[in-house]
């Protein structure tokens, strides 16, 4: 997976970041459904990767895309934006 940059002090002032460092937060914990790729239909264009708000999608070694379940929040944007209907949102029990 591509490396993530180190957070600089100024970047941490962003309102979307948890500044109370004592409160651990795992984005994946909020997920209600998980995206699943149908590789037969996927053209590996990477659009799903571009639109994921949480940068959860990465390119695996075979060139196909996958979601990092620790980061994915299950929003379903990737599912809506894929041109070929490759991604389905699978509910977790």
């Amino acid at each position: 997976m591509e490396s993530t940059a180190k957070f600089t002090k100024s970047m941490v002032e962003c309102s979307l970041l948890d500044k109370e460092l004592g409160r651990p937060f795992k984005p994946g914990a909020r997920r209600e459904a998980t995206p699943e790729w149908d590789k037969d239909k996927c053209v590996r264009c990477g659009l799903c990767y571009v639109y994921c708000p949480d940068g959860a999608i990465y390119r695996a070694e075979d060139g196909f895309f996958e979601a990092d379940t620790d980061k994915c929040k299950g929003c379903g944007i990737c599912h809506r934006e894929c041109w070929f209907g490759v991604i389905s949102m699978v509910k977790e029990d």
């Binding site: 591509e2 993530t4 957070f7 948890d18 937060f25 949480d54």
Partner: peptide, 16 residues
Amino acid sequence: FKEYFVPEKNIACSGC
């Protein structure tokens, strides 16, 4: 390709 905003403690809601 490099990600700069994929923090561990991102409190953004789903689909933000």
